[in-house]
Amino acid sequence: AITKEQDALMKLIVEAYNKHQIPQDVTKKLLQEQYSTEENFLLLTEIATSQVQVLVEFTKNIPGFLSLDHEDQIALLKGSAVEAMFLRSAQVFSRKMPKGHTEVLEERIRKSGISEEFITPLFNFYKSVGELHMVQEEQALLTAITILTPDRPYVKDQQAVERLQEPMVELLKKLCVLQHPQEPQYFARLLGRLTELRTLNHYHAEMLTSWRVN
């Protein structure tokens, strides 16, 4: 069972996850009709920027994060921003969206000058995350675990990061057993998504370059 401390940790992470969301006025624009490729491009850039700001606000609430070395904080955030962004946006596609919203979002991403080579793996990821039907606690913890990945580039004190990540992984494992008793492989499937996320990192870097060329 989940200990008192673990429960407190979970509540704190979920509360921070819910508190820091992309502002309504930004997401509302996503649903407005007929945008040109250029406007889609600018809109996606605006949302990506907002997601990074939301990511930092969320991360500040992760116990121990602000006591890490300042440059390591930057390295962790920089190294995980893209993954955290896709993990979060995946939930938009898997949550019960009002009729037609998902299609509009998908159309917007497809019509923003991003090459097909990147869009296919991105939507495969969204689909595989959607099939997991993650509960909110799992989404918040998985995001925190993604950010606290010790082997990001330029992280100096990896052990300090590991000490923060480890209890989160333990807690997520217990949560998966409690939430998905009939699926013993569920935790492993969640971690599998993190591996898939890392490949998106690579595609994202290439996508940015091709986007700029277009």
Binding site: V52, V56, A81, L208
Partner: peptide, 21 residues
Amino acid sequence: PASNLGLEDIIRKALMGNLEE
């Protein structure tokens, strides 16, 4: 690339935010 620089600036600015609060 410029976008990465942008990313780091956004992160540094948002992190510093807690000094103003």
